[in-house]
Design a protein around this nucleic acid. Structure first.
Length: 677
RNA sequence: GGCGAGGUAGCUCAGUUGGUUAGAGCGCAUGAUUCAUAAUCAUGAGGUCGCGGGAUCAUGCCCCGCCCUCGCUACCA
């Protein structure tokens, strides 16, 4: 750990199809920023890298939907993201983007190197192709009828109605999103990274050599590695991205997951000609700050790429966080369930640090956590205002009152003074230990202890009483208080940079180094401090209520949207309907299908016979409670083998908008086998 | 179903290689205090450490089984 000379910190590249929200901040940018600021404060050589991830299919789709170009989309969001990071005070040394020229060059080069070294496997497969548009169709570029729920506008990768994940080839009546035409199946060649080849090495490198990684990270890597790794396509047929730099690969680009992490390298190149020092010198420590959704890319795939390339450093640690929820629900960009950074900055001007504080104090370090506005308010009012702001204010008010703002000369220190100063040094080493091991929540808590220490010292010393009898003693007390306050400007600097700027201006003090934390002479006797303003202000209920109302409104509009019923399918002829033989029936036996989550094996009396049907309803019904249940059954559906069982027919279920399945049964008792027509 | 991560005070979390009465902050109650944004300081109440077995002189921590939450994965005629 100590044999590194410098540190390169990367933070996950936000995807440029939407703005940044508190989930991104809590998971990645706030901890990365704290760490970067901490190392800088220690005088270490450090680079903090960020940038927008601008390739991939979702961006092309969004462009299509909005009738504009992918470039216009990424320009818009890149600008927005970059701007809000800057205002929020995420201290990137460079914030780049993957649509830049330098990135295209870098990504191409790395691809080319691996290609030339024979690290890829070539494979040809069939994929949908739009003849009119003259291009292959990514899964999301194909729509059609979902084979499961019959939803007409299912995408090739996922049905948005029932949530099933699909392959484009599963769709009934597939259609190209581009032209609306029926796509044809065509052969296409792609390059794959044979991850299976790296399995033994990954086992050694992660499972043996990096046992110190966070449990959630280590565990997930282990899960992936033990599950067996498969070759992964590094290219795809698309016209938005980094073109595949070899002959015969026209119309193909690098898969976004391949080019995105290379963005860290290009950003470094953009920043400094000396970039190799940061990426190739083994004395540089590489750290990836990411969210848990990115663990496999940063721990397995990207290191495999770098390893295959051969000349790059591998990450020393990947301190991934879990997810932050918002008021009990998952944050979702598409459902607008989020606190957007750019909106926060407008609605809470000057309170950047308050959000940083809350997100750090409540960071999802070991498990998913919940952000609530009520907690936000409490953290501000009872910690930032009451503990930190209040202490600073008390000290400066007293200093102004007793000494017209001039730091007094201390007399001989008493035991209690020495103790207070010693605690400061003790806390310093504890904070260091927490930060060095990425325990930011703990580090912040310990830092707050310093302010608590100050409050307690003041309360114990009671200078406002002693001043009447022993004004000399009060000079010492206030001197100590002022030193504690000055120390706060160092300790809090990584967490609350704007606020510490303000505090330094109150104290008339320049920026100090971490090594000076713990000193008892940061403010010399005779030094003049200013009259303070408030460091933090209380957040009143109405401000919080406005935010809660805003979320409630979002919830309401989401519900309305959900309540809309799927539109009717196109007309069919009576004959089409008549082909289906639907009967009444009764469930006579039911059992769970072993090793599945959703499947029940049902024995149905159809009137015609007793037969077995496998049905995906196990999440909705216990086997014992549905014996005797009347059902509607499609009896002439072609049999299908599911998990080793022949399923002969299909039970008709009605699905509610919440996704609940209920049986469709006759309204009166009727014999099994009655035709439904 | 498989794999991974979690399940500790009302809330958010610590609990190091198993070892004395299980900790912190917020919230709550009581008291002290007034320099301070009714802020601060002290004291206290509050926990069958998810459930059930087991190994041990001893377990929140080890072993086995089960339940719940989150993620990945298989499956949904």
């Amino acid at each position: 750990m100590s044999n590194f000379k410098r540190t390169l910190i990367t933070s996950a590249l936000p995807y440029a199809n939407g703005p940044v929200h508190i989930g991104h901040l809590a998971g990645v940018y706030v901890p990365a920023d704290i760490f970067a600021r901490y190392l800088r404060l220690k005088g270490e050589e450090v680079l903090f890298i960020g940038g927008s991830d601008e390739h991939g299919v979702p961006i092309t789709l969004k462009a299509k939907k909005e009738g504009t170009t992918p470039q216009a989309i990424v320009d818009k969001y890149h600008g927005m993201i970059k701007d809000s990071f800057e205002k929020f005070g995420i201290s990137f040394d460079v914030y780049s983007r993957t649509s830049s020229k330098i990135h295209h060059e870098t990504a191409s080069e790395i691809f080319k190197t691996l290609y030339d070294k024979g690290e890829f496997v070539e494979q040809t497969s069939g994929q949908f192709y739009d003849e009119e548009a003259g291009q292959f169709l990514a899964d999301r570029y194909v729509t059609g009828t979902c084979p499961k729920c019959g939803f007409e506008k299912a995408y090739g990768d996922q049905c948005e109605s029932c949530g099933t994940s699909l392959n484009a080839t599963d769709l009934i009546n597939p259609k190209s999103v581009l032209s609306g035409n029926v796509p044809v199946m065509k052969e296409t060649k792609h390059w794959y990274l044979p991850l299976d080849k790296y399995e033994p090495w990954l086992k050694e490198w992660i499972l043996e050599d990096h046992k110190e990684w966070k449990p959630n990270v280590y565990g997930q890597c282990k899960s992936w590695i033990d599950g067996g790794l498969n070759p992964r396509a590094v290219t795809r047929d698309l016209d938005w991205g980094v073109p595949v730099p070899i002959e015969g690969a026209e119309g193909k680009v690098l898969y976004v997951w391949f080019d995105a992490p290379i963005g860290y390298i290009s950003a470094t190149k953009e920043l400094t000609p000396d970039w190799k020092k940061y990426w190739k010198d083994p004395e540089t420590r590489l750290l990836h700050f990411i969210g848990k959704d990115n663990i496999v890319f940063h721990c397995i795939i990207f290191p495999s790429i770098l390893k295959a390339e051969g000349s790059y450093n591998l990450p020393d640690n990947v301190p991934a966080n879990e997810f932050l929820n918002l008021e009990g629900d998952k944050i979702s960009t598409s459902r607008n369930w989020a606190v957007w950074l750019h909106e926060y900055l407008e609605e809470f001007p000057g309170k950047e640090d308050v959000l940083k504080y809350t997100l750090t104090a409540n960071a999802p370090e070991t498990k998913d956590n919940d952000f609530t506005w009520k907690d936000f308010q409490a953290r501000n009012n009872s910690e930032l205002v009451a503990i930190l702001g209040n202490f600073v204010n008390r000290v400066l008010v007293l200093t102004n009152k007793y000494y017209e703002g001039v730091v007094p000369v201390a007399g001989k220190l008493e035991l209690r003074d020495e103790e207070a100063l010693a605690t400061l040094i003790q806390l310093k080493s504890e904070i260091e230990k927490a930060l060095d091991t990425f325990h930011f929540r703990e580090a912040l808590r310990l830092t707050m202890e310093m302010a608590r220490l100050g409050n307690k010292y003041l309360a114990d010393m009671e200078p406002w009483i002693v001043v009447k009898t022993n004004p000399e003693r009060v000079k010492t007390v206030m001197y100590i208080c002022l030193q504690i306050t000055a120390n706060l400007t160092i300790a809090f600097e990584p967490f609350l940079p704007f606020t510490m700027n303000k505090l330094r201006s109150f104290l008339n003090l320049g920026k100090l180094q971490w090594s000076e934390l713990g000193r008892r002479d940061l403010l010399k006797a005779g030094h003049r401090v200013n009259t303070p303003e408030l460091l933090f202000e209380k957040i009143e209920d109405d401000a919080i209520q406005r935010q809660v109302d805003k979320l409630l409104a979002t919830k309401k509009s989401n519900e309305l949207e959900q309540a809309t019923v799927a539109p009717a399918k196109p007309h069919i002829e009576y004959d089409d309907f008549a082909k289906m033989d639907i009967r009444t029936g009764t469930i006579v036996a039911a059992e769970k299908v072993a090793k599945t989550m959703k499947l029940l094996k049902l024995t149905i009396n159809t009137g015609i016979d007793q037969r077995t049907v496998v049905s995906g309803i196990a999440e909705h019904y216990e086997p014992e409670q549905i014996v005797g249940q009347r059902v509607s059954i499609l009896v002439n559906l072609a049999p299908k083998n599911l998990k080793g069982i022949d399923s002969q027919g299909m039970i008709l279920m009605a699905e509610s908008k919440e996704g609940k399945l209920v049986f469709v049964e006759p309204s009166e008792a009727i014999n099994d086998g009655a035709e439904i027509k």
